[in-house]
Structure formats: structure tokens, C-alpha cells
Design a protein around this nucleic acid. Structure first.
Lengths: 126, 126
DNA sequence: GAGAGAAGTTAACCTATACTAACATCATGC
DNA sequence: GCATGATGTTAGTATAGGTTAACTTCTCTC
């Protein structure tokens, strides 16, 4: 899986958060309001993600994920949840701050490292 | 302390890594080679940091940090070391990967959170 | 089925950050 | 003390990611 920019990772993650899959479509305007960016920005990002075959979207139509896009978005969201859990439950950081920090940190974690994080956190819970 | 961009944080951090303080000057070309960016990029970034009173530099002269710049750079470097230690020693991530990931994550940690991280890691070592 | 408002698109623009190339200044060896 | 190579500066360019404003298309209600 080719690495994409943090910004593009955020778009994929948001689409998954909104329930997007290869079947379930998501509206541009919902991405826009969820992320707090303009409709134009979503349009631009989605066009780029189309080029990379990570999302599909017909002209003036709703957005679905490709297999690869779904996998990518899901993995980003997984890292997000893991980090959020760690920051709040184990470090005691307040939820809003943890949310922000997880949002940044999730982009800096490789698949390899994710596994190690997961193992570590599992052990902590025992 | 006003928050600056990740890129500018990297420049301050690098200056501290190279031994820069309020007294000890650092050369532009050394920042350039350490960071792997062009001399022109260093010049631009340093100019911006001068405007923010985080570094000092006379025309064609070497770079020193202001009190505030030193404090900022030191704190970024501290977060870097903490994360690197955690990623390598506790998660078992290999040093190169850990270095890269710490480099990204360090920008997503507030002072508040840093303290919590430090406390947590101290406990792990007991 | 036509009009109005919501949603999507496009064009033009802005900022941050990088680059290269050309130029200016410094500093060292002879 | 001056030429040359190293260092610093500036100008012009590119790309990524965002914006607003104007336009197109869709959809829902009557």
C-alpha cells in the first residue's frame, strides 16, 4: 500500500468514520462538515484520491471507497482508536486533548509499529 | 509560548541538536546538511524565526537562539528523546523507524501531555 | 413539471514550504 | 593582500493544501 499524505489519510479516515465502504456511499458535504473544511477542498482531495484509485465517485455523485481505500482508511482509524485509548486510559490525558494529539500521531505509525503498540497495550491491560 | 509550525519546530530542534544556545552559534550550512534541505530553505526559515524572536542572526552571520527559542527547541528535543526511548525500549521498534516516527509524533505533544508521558515511562522502568 | 434551495464543481487565488540558480560576502592559504 | 572556494542571500519557480465566489446539477415540494 503506497503511502499518501497526512491530509489524504484524514479524508479516507473521515469517510470510514461516516460509514463509507465499497458499497455504502458518503456525501461530500458530510465530509466537509465533519472535517471543518470547504466543499471545494473536499472536491479537490477526492479528485486526487480518485486518481490514486482509493475512492470512486461519478460526476455529481456520492463517494464510495475502493477496496484499497477502505483498507487504508480503516487502518488509519484503527491507529486513531488505539492511540486515543492509550492517551486517555493510560496517560490520563483529557479526551479533547487526546483526540487532537491522536489525530496527529496516527499519521506517524507504520503497520509494523502498530502491531507493537497493540501488543504493548494489550499487556498493560492485564 | 506561542505555537509554531512543525517545520519551524524542526529547525529549532536541529539548532539545539547542533549545540546552539543563546551564546553558542550554529552555522546555516550545518543546519542545512543535518536536515537535508537546501541552504535557501534554511535561510527562509531562519528569517521567519527571527521575526518571531526565536533566533538571532546578523547579516551574513551565524545563528544563535534567543532565550525563548532555546527553551522551545530544548522542549521539542526532550519530547523527541522521550518518544524515541519509549518506541525502542518499550515497544521494541527498530531504531531507524523509531527515529522517524518520534520525529513526527514529537510535534503532536503538548507540554501538559509531555508530563504525563514522562510520569508513565518513569513508572514503566520501576 | 417547475422553482428553490441544497449539494457538487470549477476557477482564481493565498500561504507555507520546499527547490535551483545566480549572486554577494567571507575567510583562508599562498 | 588577493584569489578562490565555502558560506549566506535573493529571486523565481513548484507543489500541496486550503480558501471564496460563481456556476452547474440535483432533488424535493407543491
Amino acid at each position: 500500500m503506497e503511502k499518501i499524505s497526512m491530509s489524504h489519510e484524514d479524508y479516507l479516515e473521515t469517510i470510514v468514520m461516516l460509514g463509507g465502504t465499497t458499497k455504502q456511499a458518503v456525501r461530500s458535504v458530510d465530509i466537509s462538515s465533519k472535517m471543518g473544511v470547504s466543499k471545494a477542498s473536499v472536491n479537490k482531495a477526492v479528485s486526487a484520491l480518485k486518481e490514486k484509485h482509493l475512492v470512486d465517485q461519478p460526476y455529481y455523485g456520492d463517494i464510495t471507497l475502493t477496496e484499497e481505500g477502505y483498507e487504508y482508511g480503516t487502518s488509519v482509524l484503527g491507529r486513531h482508536h488505539l492511540l486515543l485509548k492509550f492517551l486517555t486510559e493510560h496517560l490520563g490525558i483529557d479526551p479533547e486533548t487526546a483526540e487532537e494529539e491522536a489525530c496527529q500521531m496516527e499519521h506517524a505509525m507504520s503497520d509494523e509499529s502498530f502491531k507493537k503498540w497493540a501488543t504493548f497495550i494489550k499487556k498493560l491491560n492485564k
